[in-house]
Design a protein around this nucleic acid. Structure first.
Lengths: 211, 211
DNA sequence: TTTGTCCTGTGAATTGAATAACAAAAACTA
DNA sequence: TAGTTTTTGTTATTCAATTCACAGGACAAA
């Protein structure tokens, strides 16, 4: 697929493609071969138009009478969001969250695997949590370069997030997923996604309060 | 504050207010009394205009020369996003994620507290995880009504999410935060927020791949 | 005073994403 | 064969959120 086209896919569409793929894999395992836009929409609780528009953006054409070929579509989504030779991820902060995330991803995605965890707690260094070896943060650059890690997840306490992000950037990490409550700043060439659970829970609480 | 005005505050502004408040509390603890929009903006890594506009929407006026009074602003944000008598939350699924979330919130927010956890694992029932008592999911309605719980967090495996959400809605939960990889559907009067970690990580991986 | 600087507050323009509306193709139905 | 139904693909519209642009107040210095 052409680079210029990929660059123009909206962020939200990328997110939905990831979700379509997982839904499609389930359908495929149930023996389905084709699926209509309104069926995908129903699984994801969105509209059929949105599904068709997303697929239009990635240049996939369905069959007017049978809908979309599930296998082909999964493959096409793969060529867009997966990286050719797989991507390697490190978790910074192996506390409760770090452990939960490591366990969650263990053996789930072949092209996206968590291969290292970093912490400062001497009791954790050298151990393996959910199949992920834990190193001292001082060895970050060494391990990141050796393991060819490009993506890092921040699960350290808020007051250490900024410092941790700096280390990550200095060691050559190119994508950061920040789950700490403190926003961090990164250079333009590093992709940053932040998600704050406290904010989300307060938001839900707000809308519940407002009926 | 007037109900009609509150209803019109954009979702994104509500999220930022939650974040401003936490940043302001830190500033206050450092002895600051006033703050400029561009200072808040710098902490949050957004623009000063955005900060001013958000504060405009909640009807707060700053001082032209000294900026915003931190204490007043914290109080005002509280009247908007906090509930008068506090809100009570339950976690559905006390696996790694449920535990991490319970530990994360333990004693952190007085007006927003996790008071129950639900699971099906007999080994967990009756125990207390991070200060949260764990009950069998079959007792959900009983506990939810007794504890006056209005908000639920879904951290069960994807294949159980839909069923869990149904139980939550039937028991009178009015706000759901779904952290499972499966989207769920709820009636119109229930507020739903979904966040999928796999999607986020795949999104970061995509944009890293595209430089 | 007057001038200059540094803020806030806000209408207008822009961007980004979701929704509506509909043409056209394919396959039935009568 | 002509009409009906179903579904895709796409253009146009609407809606939400952000950014631009600037008026106007407060103070400091000259």
């Amino acid at each position: 697929m052409d680079q210029d086209i990929i660059k123009k896919i909206p962020h939200k569409t990328i997110e939905r493609l990831s979700q379509y793929r997982r839904a499609l894999l389930i359908c495929l395992s149930q023996g389905k071969t084709h699926i209509f836009s309104h069926e995908v929409a129903e699984i994801q609780h969105i509209t059929a138009v949105q599904v068709r528009r997303d697929l239009m953006l990635i240049g996939y054409s369905g069959n007017l009478r049978r809908g979309y070929n599930i296998k082909d579509l999964i493959a096409l989504i793969g060529t867009i969001i997966d990286s050719q030779d797989g991507q390697r991820v490190a978790v910074f902060g192996m506390g409760n969250f770090g452990r939960a995330i490591s366990a969650y991803f263990e053996g789930r995605r072949e092209r996206l695997s968590i291969v290292a965890g970093f912490d400062v707690n001497p009791q954790k260094i050298g151990t393996s949590i959910a199949g992920v070896p834990v190193y001292h943060i001082d060895r970050a650059c060494e391990i990141i370069s050796k393991e060819k890690i490009k993506i890092g997840i921040i699960t350290v306490p808020g007051n250490q997030a900024v410092e941790t992000a700096k280390i990550m950037v200095d060691c050559g990490i190119k994508g950061i997923l920040n789950y700490s409550p403190s926003p961090v700043k990164v250079p333009e060439d590093v992709f940053l996604e932040e998600y704050d659970m406290i904010t989300s829970l307060e938001k839900v609480a707000f809308y519940v309060k407002e009926h």
